[in-house]
Amino acid sequence: MDTAWDFFSSPLNLAEITPTDMTFDVTSPNMEHAKMYPGLIITYKVSPLFGVKLDWVTEITHVKDKEYFVDEQRFGPFAFWHHQHHFQKTEGGVSMNDILHYSIGWGPIGTVANGVMVKKKINEIFNFRYKKVEELLGKM
């Protein structure tokens, strides 16, 4: 649990578990030794679709040490983004569970865009993350 929590509580490690085609860069200053805490603002540059770089700002709103943390978008590509990361010690190691609620906005156009490409891209990102975490930390 300590290893998993230390890895996920460092904002810079998010780039390690994000597909390289998204060119994910943490732009917040002084993040080298930062650990999550409620109120932490993290800024990024990310290219979620078509190589277009976007600014993304999230806030860590809740943290319960070695159990869960929540990030919420404050500015970025989504109309709404609320992402819970839950960790639980298991007999074989650590179980990690993500709960994501999001909306891309744009009314009916957003609903179509989500059905055609956004939901698929988010699933691809999370599948990549689970595989990359297993590669870096072992099966969780």
Rank of each mutant, 00 (worst) to 15 (best):
F8H: 10
S9D: 12
S9A: 09
S9I: 01
S9G: 00
S10P: 08
P11R: 05
L12P: 14
N13Q: 02
I17N: 13
I17P: 13
P19D: 07
T20D: 13
D21P: 06
M22H: 10
M22K: 08
M22A: 06
F24I: 03
D25I: 13
V26I: 09
T27W: 09
T27I: 07
T27P: 02
S28D: 07
P29L: 05
P29A: 06
N30R: 08
E32D: 09
E32W: 04
H33Q: 12
H33M: 03
H33A: 06
A34F: 01
A34G: 08
M36Q: 09
Y37D: 07
Y37G: 07
Y37L: 05
P38V: 03
G39S: 01
G39C: 00
L40K: 12
I41K: 12
I41P: 07
T43D: 15
Y44W: 05
V46I: 14
S47I: 06
S47F: 03
L49C: 04
L49F: 15
F50W: 13
K53G: 02
L54E: 14
D55F: 10
D55V: 00
T58S: 10
E59P: 06
H62Y: 08
K64H: 02
K66W: 04
Y68M: 09
Y68P: 04
Y68R: 00
F69D: 03
V70D: 00
V70A: 00
D71V: 06
E72P: 04
R74F: 01
R74M: 10
G76C: 01
P77T: 07
P77R: 01
P77A: 14
A79W: 08
W81L: 11
Q84I: 15
Q84M: 15
Q84S: 13
H86I: 05
F87Y: 05
Q88W: 05
K89Q: 13
T90R: 02
E91W: 00
G92P: 05
G92C: 09
V94M: 14
V94S: 12
V94F: 02
N97G: 06
I99A: 13
I99M: 13
L100E: 04
I104T: 11
G105Q: 03
G107S: 11
G107W: 11
I109D: 02
I109L: 15
G110E: 00
T111S: 13
V112W: 10
A113L: 11
A113G: 07
A113K: 06
N114Y: 06
N114S: 15
G115T: 00
G115R: 04
G115Q: 05
V116E: 10
I122Y: 00
I122A: 04
E124K: 14
E124D: 14
E124H: 14
I125S: 02
F126L: 04
F126I: 02
N127F: 14
F128R: 05
R129W: 01
R129E: 01
R129T: 03
K131N: 12
E134M: 07
E135G: 02
L136H: 10
L136N: 08
L137Y: 09
L137N: 00
